[in-house]
Amino acid sequence: MSVLVVVECDKGEVKKSSLEVATYGAQLAAQLGTSATAIAVGEATEDNLAKLGEQGISKVLYDKEPRLKDFVNNAYTKLIATAAQQEDAKVIVLANSNIGAAVGSRLSIRLQASLATNVVELPRTDGGQFTVKRGAFSGKAFSDVVLTGDRKIIAVKKNSIEAHHEAGKTAEVAAFSAQLGDQDFADAPKQVVMQDPAGGILLPEAERVVSGGRGMKGPENWGLIEDLAKALGAATACSKPVSDVDWRPHHEHVGQTGITVSPNLYIACGISGAIQHLAGVNSSKVIVVINKDPEAPFFKAADYGIVGDVFEVLPKLTAAVKELN
């Protein structure tokens, strides 16, 4: 038996969330007294896959089928299922990403496995039970879940595990073929359209986020948010009312019915802090709130706060970051 880790790659690089997943898988394997093997999906390079040794992966399976570059649900599911059978994997670990959720849910049926998504910690495996802690109620709570199946699939929430780096360790990259044919690629995308996120940082994977609400008064003022984000190397985000009126695209909407994020730093500018918004951000490690209303509920959920006008405060912060750097 072993732990199988699904590693998503893009433009040759292993995604940050997959470095976290690899770390999780290696630590879990150590806990279970076995080894962690990875299976690569997406556009990978052998050099970068070998570097997964730094996270504690011993072997990486790599199918060079070129059509695996883009996400194809059936093909990815078959690829990972085949690898799981070959490696006799009792636990499969993947990212709680759009790809991870799409593949993990199909795999759970094919492999008759128990599936837990949105997992935030290593499992507890004492007393013969396998218990994971996962986010529930859209960030408002956590639940402990026992996985009763013989096989388990765990989707790890982004930014909940810190990627481990042990310089110089390499993993063996082993050629692998799941014998995929045309029928496995029947649901291949006709076209893939990538956005160019501000500053090149994707919100779901960002370590720092600068977010704006209705207090920004209009989309024309977003330059202030973007300037601070750029100086900090942060992604930009917004509250629901802002995306509802199309000041910002919906994929920047953070909250209960948008995306939930858990960066190291979340800076909220002109956001009052409705319960639905807090749900999306309250697992951030440090929260900063800037609002002119001292009674804004967000201050109760914040670590640092400035009561003041965002239009005056933001340029000062951006200048201070530039000075510090």
């Binding site: 759970s108 496995a113 128990s114 599936l115 837990a116 218990t131 802690k133 529930a136 960030g139 408002k140 709570a141 956590f142 639940s143 402990d144 879940v145 026992v146 996985l147 009763t148 199946g149 309250n282 697992s283 929260i287 900063v288 709130v289 201050f299 109760k300 959920a301 914040a302 670590d303 640092y304 706060g305 400035i306 009561v307 003041g308 006008d309 005056e312 405060v313 000062k316 912060l317 200048a319 201070a320 970051v321 000075e323 510090l324």
Partner: peptide
């Protein structure tokens, strides 16, 4: 195939540290 055994609320924040707006750079 899964069973919820317990729920928990997120840990509460310790309380906010306020920085004077006139001296906003202090936050950084």
């Amino acid at each position: 195939r899964t069973q919820v055994t317990e729920y928990a609320l997120p840990p509460k924040k310790q309380g906010v540290k306020l920085i004077d707006a006139a001296n906003a750079g202090e936050l950084i």
